[in-house]
């Protein structure tokens, strides 16, 4: 990993140990370019109340100039949340996570978690994106190869 990205991630890690926003928890990091975080929705949204979801972060050498790869993953007691912009394989369709689109290098692991948290909070639809099944079938692609069209300004 580049010293540039490593330095930034070490700083973020140090800050995380001082405390995180409510409903966001650090789980572990097998190595510096791979972190796992847990998030909870804070209000009583019936879709997510009482549940915890796990996020997988992967950082490139160019982080934070480039966006990290962020997906939901399954684990014991951790499901993939229902959301019209979250595929059942955990891939999240969010412009913030795309380097060419909404990503800014000022974002951090914590701010990404907060954005995803509020994306869940605001959702009332108990459904998957259109074409979820076909999309999930085409396995083996890296998240970076997928170009989403951000046609919904509400997320």
């Amino acid at each position: 990993m580049s010293t540039f990205a490593a330095k930034r991630l070490q700083k973020e890690m140090a800050k995380i140990h001082q405390g995180l926003a409510p409903g966001i928890f650090f789980v572990n990091s097998p190595n510096l370019q791979h972190w796992q975080m847990d998030i909870q929705v804070l209000d009583s949204n019936p879709l997510y109340a009482g549940k915890t979801f796990r996020l997988n972060f992967r950082f490139s050498n160019n982080y934070p100039i480039e966006a990290p790869e962020v997906t939901f993953i399954r684990a014991p007691d951790r499901e993939i949340p229902m959301h019209p912009h979250i595929y059942s394989n955990g891939i999240i369709c969010l412009d913030l996570l795309s380097s060419g689109n909404g990503w800014s290098p000022v974002q951090s692991v914590e701010s990404v978690c907060m954005s995803i948290q509020s994306m869940l909070t605001g959702n009332t639809k108990n459904e998957r994106p259109e074409g979820d099944e076909a999309f999930v079938l085409r396995e083996g692609r890296s998240v970076r190869d997928i170009r989403f069209v951000y046609d919904d300004p509400t997320v």
Partner: peptide
């Protein structure tokens, strides 16, 4: 250094030129 890296990424990787925005979110 960060500004430089940011511009290099926008220009060399993303092929942007006339519409590169300030690195600040928003």
């Amino acid at each position: 250094d960060c500004y430089k890296q940011y511009l290099e990424n926008k220009i060399m990787s993303e092929g942007e030129s006339g519409r590169i925005q300030c690195p600040t979110d928003g």
